[in-house]
Amino acid sequence: MSVFYLVAFLAIFFALMTIFTKNPVHSVLYLVVTFFTLTIHYILLNAQFLAVVNFIVYMGAIMVLFLFVLMLLNMNEESEPMKSNLVKVMGAIAGICLIATFLGAFKVIAPNNEFVVGNAEVGLVKNLGKVLFNEFLLPFEISSILLLTAMVGAVLLAKKEVKKI
């Protein structure tokens, strides 16, 4: 349990650092460390597959792309535009919505909930695969179609328009 508290503390600490650092590249690096702590959380929950996938996809690919873009943009404090009041209000509303969702989630998932106590082995690859391809086959396939759509969209955006003569 002490491991959990340590890792949870680190996760929150680095998440806060992500927000409070001025340098965008540092911010992304702190976010990477935050994801790493989340990976440790998954391992503590015995969800090895999720841990590794979180590791590969978020830390290994998505955050690299974030970093990639930030390095190209070369942002610094001087060039940062002033944020308008509208953005601040929007941010506040989004934050309140998030807190509301969290509160609701905490209420539903009480410590004796079956999802929380549940089968500790469900995170292993074999069990997870069986669950995904039996009970949750339809959502799984729908999400894959969503990804495919996104991919086609990305290709379409990236392709130059052919000039018609």
Binding site: Q48, V52, F55, I56, M59, V64, L67, F68, M71, V125
Partner: peptide, 25 residues
């Protein structure tokens, strides 16, 4: 002997690029 060994290697290799990126930047 972890049961997601192949993925573990994969993840670590994916992490390897950070060393190059951070150093380069």
């Amino acid at each position: 002997d972890i049961n997601v060994g192949v993925l573990y290697i994969f993840g670590v290799v994916a992490l390897g690029v950070y060393g190059i990126m951070i150093g380069g930047w």
